[in-house]
Design a protein around this nucleic acid. Structure first.
Lengths: 116, 116
DNA sequence: TCATCATATCAGCATGTGGTGATATTACCC
DNA sequence: GGGTAATATCACCACATGCTGATATGATGA
């Protein structure tokens, strides 16, 4: 039974998932799944603002999801662990089945738009 | 390369992860990992308010992460897919290595309340 | 050293969203 | 049918948090 048990661990785990729960961060992680990239390259790949990317990278870096390596003026970022990518893939597979549900999961986002 | 590619899919995936990114929902999912439970049992297991649990369950249900089955006055909830549990387990394993990082990931959250 | 590029940081704003309490709904038991 | 238990829904509030623009830091090249 290696599933989360104590509330402490649940808080941490929620924090971990929060790293994945934002489209911007997910774009970044997805881009990094192909290999290390500089901040500029991430900006270009995701279409996000530079400061926005830097903010998210700082968070992802603090969370240990990405690793940074400075090379001159550039800073290369990469996924810190293969399991980060595996999580993305597993979620992708899960989505293949529950996508319609997630599409309509607007409980907290939209009020109506619930017709079918 | 079955990783997320188009921005549309990234939005959906972020939504999926958002289902996991809250301690309350994670507690619920974790509790359900042991088998189907009624709302009352979930309330008892998690220590959350009844309305709070119901709200989260509605979201999780809409997202397709849990399934509900009514039995008399009770409604039994269970994980809708094994991969939901697998995601939790994989995250748990990943946490074993990056936990210290996640602990200190307070970029957007300054609250402590993390003493032990 | 100065200019410039690459990146990081910060304050402020707007919005998303989790929690609560009240209440509605539904099903059961007497 | 009345009462009660189990669950769902809703409005409201407080706060977290993502985005932006401005700016700071740091490294490189001339």
């Amino acid at each position: 039974m290696l599933l989360v048990a104590n509330p402490k661990s649940i808080d941490i785990q929620a924090k971990l998932f929060r790293g994945f729960s934002d489209p911007s961060r997910l774009s970044i992680l997805s881009a990094l799944h192909g290999g290390a990239l500089t901040v500029s390259e991430i900006v270009e790949a995701t279409g996000l603002t530079q400061s926005n990317v830097s903010n998210h990278l700082a968070c992802l870096r603090d969370c240990g999801l990405v690793a940074a390596e400075q090379q001159g003026r550039f800073v290369y970022y990469e996924l810190s662990d293969k399991r980060v990518g595996r999580l993305l893939i597993l979620a992708d597979e899960l989505l293949a089945d529950v996508a319609k549900g997630v599409y309509e999961c607007t409980r907290y986002t939209i009020k109506d738009a619930k017709n079918g």
